[in-house]
Design a binder for these strands. Structure first.
Lengths: 140, 140
DNA sequence: GATCAATGCAACAGTGAATGTTACGTATAG
DNA sequence: CTATACGTAACATTCACTGTTGCATTGATC
């Protein structure tokens, strides 16, 4: 449970919420189901809240809920909200002194940006509601 | 100099070799130019040798050289040789018990594989010889 | 043959980012 | 007022990657 666990956690949680949008879930419940810690859950879901995908309520009977109908939350929304780049952005902003290095970085960065955009476009084609329907029981 | 330094180092080195294919360079020279350690250079270039992109010779007057003409070594060759996945592969092979999680992973993995293939296709369109020509001196 | 210079490789140290954990403040229902 | 839950800061832990040292091996040169 090391790499990319944030995206997994976020999608997993939203997937369950899509199945029962009215229900409010606490970070302890979510952490328990996902096998992690409530603080970690709040960290990750906090980004989704800032992006307007979730709402949270404090206090007794508080918890987390979808801010929109599940068919209006795409996988791309989640990906972007987490501000991750599965594709290394490497905008270290350090223009190297070596011209060969500079030329290479430019080439590679252009390709990476195109690919990242392509990734987001593809993720935008699926909502967390779609995922539920696809989730038929496997043969194992 | 933390993330993705392997790909940068490999491309940078091959770029210079493309400029003077006949010359033999030692890992000490390369490390000095790249600001790293000879052992690190040998680690990275060793993978390129296994992939048939470079040859190395031991002993006095030994060092590294291209195994093919520079216009026959594409950026994709280098990327594949390093066995990296800029895009997280997350084939942890752990099929989760939760059906929502399973369905999500399947969706995401399909998208990531498509995007990775797209990345390689784009990198295949440029060779290390091309990069030299693009490397005109910038205005700074 | 002796020597020097280079790769090959193993083992360990150092670094940094991400996750896990504890603690405490704040808000809210009952 | 109390219990519950989020919000956040601070610290601990883990893990991959890079850096480093050491040594065996190989090959050209004296």
């Amino acid at each position: 449970m090391k790499r990319n666990s944030r995206l997994s956690l976020a999608l997993h949680t939203l997937g369950h919420m899509a199945a029962d949008p009215g229900r409010t879930q606490t970070s302890a419940d979510i952490a328990d189901h996902a096998g992690t810690n409530p603080v970690v859950v709040r960290r990750v879901l906090g980004k989704l809240r800032k992006a307007g995908l979730l709402t949270s309520e404090k206090g007794h009977a508080g918890g987390w809920r979808l801010a929109r109908p599940p068919d209006r939350i795409s996988l791309a929304d989640v990906y972007v909200a987490l501000e991750e780049s599965l594709i290394a952005t490497e905008d270290d902003a350090e223009a190297p002194a070596c011209s060969v290095e500079r030329a290479l970085q430019k080439k590679v960065v252009v390709v990476l940006e195109e690919v990242e955009r392509s990734l987001i476009d593809r993720l935008a084609g699926t909502t967390i509601a779609d995922v539920r329907e696809t989730g038929a029981a496997p043969q194992t």
